[in-house]
């Protein structure tokens, strides 16, 4: 990632946590102190939140400095990876936004787990994730999917009796 974007992202993250701390400050206004002391449910969040904001300001200042430096140098960094763009549009797209695609897959997995349970969700996730990671030999994929799911199911649910998500449909 380019230096500039990184600095921007850093500023964004620090601001995000500042706002979380501020939000906690606002919410904790409802909590009383213990009679006649500085003790109470709000003391600790306030204290920590305050300190966090101080550190965040330092971080932001540093990031802003770097941002300015990057701008003044005006250097355009070379793209670190050159890749052949082959295959379908879909292929190019998931390659470009690979992490995002993985996150989307995982969100789908999460939803599937809640609805159809562990077995089906996992049988679907493994090939999809392997496809995304460009591991696409059909036979190994099937073997890995079946063996992997079976292994996990056996280890957790059958041997140790630890329940796995069974989903709303069959629960």
């Amino acid at each position: 990632m380019r230096e500039k974007n990184k600095a921007m992202l850093e500023i964004g993250m620090n601001l995000l946590f500042c706002s979380v701390a501020f939000g906690m400050y606002m919410v904790s206004h409802n909590y009383d102190f213990l009679e006649g002391t500085i003790l109470g449910a709000r003391t600790f969040p306030l204290l920590i939140g305050g300190i966090l904001v101080v550190f965040a300001i330092v971080n932001i200042t540093c990031a802003v400095k770097r941002l300015k430096l990057a701008k003044s140098l005006g250097k355009v960094e070379a793209k670190d990876i050159h890749e052949e763009r082959v295959g379908s549009v879909f292929n190019i797209l998931i390659r470009e936004y690979r992490v995002l695609s993985a996150v989307i897959l995982l969100v789908l997995y999460f939803l599937l787990l809640s609805f159809v349970g562990f077995l089906i969700a996992t049988v679907l996730l493994i090939p999809a994730m392997l496809y995304l990671l460009e591991y696409r030999k059909p036979l190994p994929v099937v073997v890995i999917t079946v063996l992997g799911t079976a292994f996990l199911f056996t280890a957790f649910q059958v041997l140790l009796g630890v329940p796995l998500p069974d989903g709303l449909l069959f629960g």
């Binding site: 089906i120 090939p127 099937v142 999917t145 079946v146």
Partner: peptide
């Protein structure tokens, strides 16, 4: 894959 699914 489909067969596995239905059996499950």
């Amino acid at each position: 894959v489909l067969m596995t699914l239905t059996s499950l």
